[in-house]
């Protein structure tokens, strides 16, 4: 509005210019006021969401960041014991916790394995999900049944399926080894050998993750127009060429989102690791979150500041990942 007034006044020569009352300079304050007066309805509508988010996301996040900058442990935080109130005595220590964490060889070991675990899980889950989705995206007898059956792992609560896998993997009484031994093959120490345990936990996480990938990618596949395939076929494109040049590009919007989500979930997949191996054997399968848990809930006095530090570091790592992921996609012309 203000931009328009200037020139329109200037374009009116000859007319008697009556200097009207000067418009007040457009300050920030008036902008806010105007935004409120114009959009008050919208603000009222989003207020509940903002408040709920602030309480369930913002408060724990803010508290976690604050604790990571202190030396808070169980022994110096505020406590209420019956009528006795013990005030908090922990102190602000700046970035000391972060310096300690990055200097700790344990942190680097866990970080390396967490990255290996995430990359392995996400890539296998994505490939399998894509393969299954492609298979189910055509007319096959009993398609509905297959789709149902493949979604089952998703429909069972995660911890229930992890427990079932625990039984299957049991070296001495598990079903898997019973079958192997019955077939004359030596029993495999599924969760008792460090290397095999790593493969075992990845397998379970893939099993849990495939249905989501498959359903999401199947949706993506069905949104690719069929005439593209027809046209390609007319031009003599082979099945691989059609997959490579129609299916994959057509799936990109879905793929980018599910890969990002899957990465974040896998990076922090506490239940699979904790319930299957508790991070063991030894500490072979310990990822960053399970290690942070170990530090908070096993040691005494429980160290709230260190585990908060690890939590914030995990958040930062994922933020950095999401940021670069987005940038790479943007560079490739993806509207995201």
């Amino acid at each position: 509005m203000a931009v328009h007034t200037g020139p329109s006044v200037a374009k009116a020569p000859g007319k008697a210019t009556v200097p009207g009352p000067r418009r007040p300079a457009r300050t920030r304050e008036s902008g806010v006021r105007r935004a409120l007066s114009t959009h008050w309805y919208a603000w009222t509508m989003v207020a509940p969401v903002v408040i709920v988010l602030a309480i369930i996301v913002g408060y724990p996040l803010g508290r976690g960041i604050w604790l990571s900058l202190t030396d808070a442990t169980e022994a110096n935080v505020e406590r209420t014991i019956g009528v006795n109130h013990i005030p908090a005595t922990y102190e602000f220590t700046g970035l000391q916790n972060y310096v300690d964490a990055f200097g700790d060889p344990v942190f680097l070991q866990r970080l390396v394995w967490t990255i290996v675990w995430t990359v392995a899980c996400v890539s296998i889950t994505y490939s399998l999900g894509l393969a299954l989705a492609t298979l189910l995206n055509r007319q096959v007898a009993g398609r509905g049944f297959y789709r149902m059956a493949l979604v089952v792992p998703w429909a069972i609560p995660g911890f229930v399926s992890v427990f079932s896998w625990n039984f299957l993997y049991n070296e001495k009484h598990g079903l898997l080894n019973k079958i192997l031994v019955g077939g004359g093959i030596d029993a495999v120490p599924w969760l008792n050998d460090p290397t095999i345990a790593k493969l075992s936990v990845i397998a379970v996480n893939v099993w849990l993750g495939v249905p989501f990938m498959m359903v999401a990618l199947l949706g993506g596949l069905q949104s690719i127009p069929g005439d593209l395939y027809e046209a390609a076929e007319m031009d003599g494109a082979s099945a691989w060429q059609r997959f490579r040049h129609i299916t994959l590009p057509g799936l990109r919007p879905v793929s980018t989102t599910v890969i990002l989500l899957s990465t974040i979930w896998t990076f922090n997949m506490f239940p699979v690791i904790f319930l299957l191996t508790r991070g063991g054997p030894g500490d072979a399968t310990e990822i960053l979150v399970t290690q942070a848990f170990r530090m908070t809930f096993v040691d005494s006095p429980r160290n709230f500041s260190t585990s908060a530090t690890w939590g914030v570091i995990i958040l930062l790592l994922l933020l950095v990942f999401a940021f670069f992921y987005r940038r790479v996609l943007k560079k490739q012309g993806e509207v995201w």
Binding site: G58, Y59, G62, R63
Partner: peptide, 12 residues
């Protein structure tokens, strides 16, 4: 949201 969460964190 940020302002709200900071305020909450401060009071907490």
């Amino acid at each position: 949201a940020l302002v709200a969460s900071l305020a909450l964190a401060a009071t907490a």
